[in-house]
Amino acid sequence: MSRQQDPQRPFFSFGNPFQMIYKGSNLSPKLLDLLKTFEVTLAERLKKLKPVDREDVLRLSWMRYAMESLCAIHTDIKTLITALEFPVCDWDDKWIDVYLDNSVKLLDICIAFSSEISRLNQSHLFLQCVLHNLEGATKQFMRAQSSLDGWRQHISSKNPRLENCFAIMDSLAETIDLPKIKNSAKGKVLMRAMYGVKVVTLFICSIFIAAFSGSMKNLMDLHVPETFSWAEAFTDLRASVNNEIRNIYSDGRVTVLKELEAVDTTVKKLYPIVQDGLDPVEAEVVQYSTSDLRIQTEKVSQGLDLLAKEVDSFFRIVLTGRDALLCNLRVGGNVTNTMQPTDDIQGQAVR
């Protein structure tokens, strides 16, 4: 999905881009430095996220790193807010309403992701049954076939929680544009930084939804004006990842997650053998395929567990940021130390 943006303006490599962008806005050197630090860091994170090999796209290890990067970016914006010393009383009511609304939507998306990771992990039980029935001295082909059928049905089924993410993503995309800031230099810095966070958050979440749902409906081709110093890094990353995801889907695969795809390939080799019965020629094929299946099953299980931890971390970061803002609204204080991530939340994170 793509959103219509303002026409891109040329980006000139000479001079100070921050002075050019904020000419006449009376930003102090301190504010310019804070913004520059945030945007340079954002650009570096995006560059590191670009897969070295296109085969890494939608690999669980890469998805874990993508979520880890998203956590870091959200922590960066909290650090910026603290450094700005921007009191809540100076925040526009619209900013607060949008932030609180968006944070709830992100929490819902995290819950959906955790639900899907848990569902995929349940498929591990089917594969364990397959291995148990094929690795013993007496091979139970009928039971192995039943477990293989169960695995394929489980993997191809749909998670209703993910269906709800489509509408949530559409709603988040509607608030992505930069608001007009008139009389607040700190507000301009904050909103510009928040724009970057929203763009990257939408992009990464759209990748996860595409990977988990089996649909490219919400794969976003967001366009960032070239006046942002991180625009080139983002555009390069977006093109690389989205193009590869579309190529993967064009092949009509059962699953687009690379580790699960490897399992599916082995399952396809085993299925006709366990269905028709074993002959001496196929004995060695079963042995090697079963060994491969065990290795691949462990990789999937470990990859999903690590990914679940990163989704849990993102949930905590969004929740602590939301709670900190609500706390400051009640006491009328500054958004300072309370905006830093804490470990005070027990039992709140998605499991």
Rank of each mutant, 00 (worst) to 15 (best):
L190H: 07
V130L: 14
S291R: 13
C110A: 11
K309M: 06
L127P: 03
S2A: 13
I21S: 13
T138S: 15
M191Q: 15
E226I: 00
V285I: 12
P51R: 15
L127Q: 10
P7N: 13
E68P: 03
Y99Q: 08
R316W: 03
M216S: 07
D221S: 10
A324G: 11
P87D: 01
D170M: 00
S289F: 04
A349S: 12
A173I: 00
L222G: 02
V350Q: 14
M194I: 03
S291Y: 11
M191H: 15
T320E: 05
L70V: 00
I155V: 08
D6G: 10
Q128V: 08
I96N: 04
K182L: 05
S250N: 07
T255M: 09
L178F: 08
R330K: 14
A239F: 09
F212P: 06
T338I: 06
Q19H: 12
Y65N: 14
K36Y: 04
K198I: 01
G277W: 12
A233T: 00
K158N: 07
V224G: 03
Q348K: 10
R238N: 14
R316L: 11
S61T: 13
S103V: 05
S250Q: 09
F166W: 06
Q296C: 02
V189K: 15
V300L: 12
S215Q: 07
C205A: 09
S206A: 05
P51G: 12
T290H: 09
D149H: 15
E174W: 02
N337E: 04
I81N: 08
P341V: 01
T201K: 13
P29W: 05
R316D: 01
A144Y: 04
K105T: 08
Q5S: 06
S215N: 09
I168K: 13
C110R: 09
C71R: 11
L329G: 13
N16W: 10
Q122F: 14
R54C: 03
S250V: 00
S291T: 02
I207Y: 03
L100G: 05
P17T: 07
S213V: 03
A211W: 06
R322K: 12
I273T: 04
S250P: 01
Y271R: 12
L260M: 11
M194W: 15
L27S: 11
A349G: 10
D149V: 07
P179E: 05
L125S: 15
E310V: 04
S184N: 10
L260N: 09
K23A: 06
L27A: 10
N159I: 02
K186M: 06
Q145H: 11
Q302D: 04
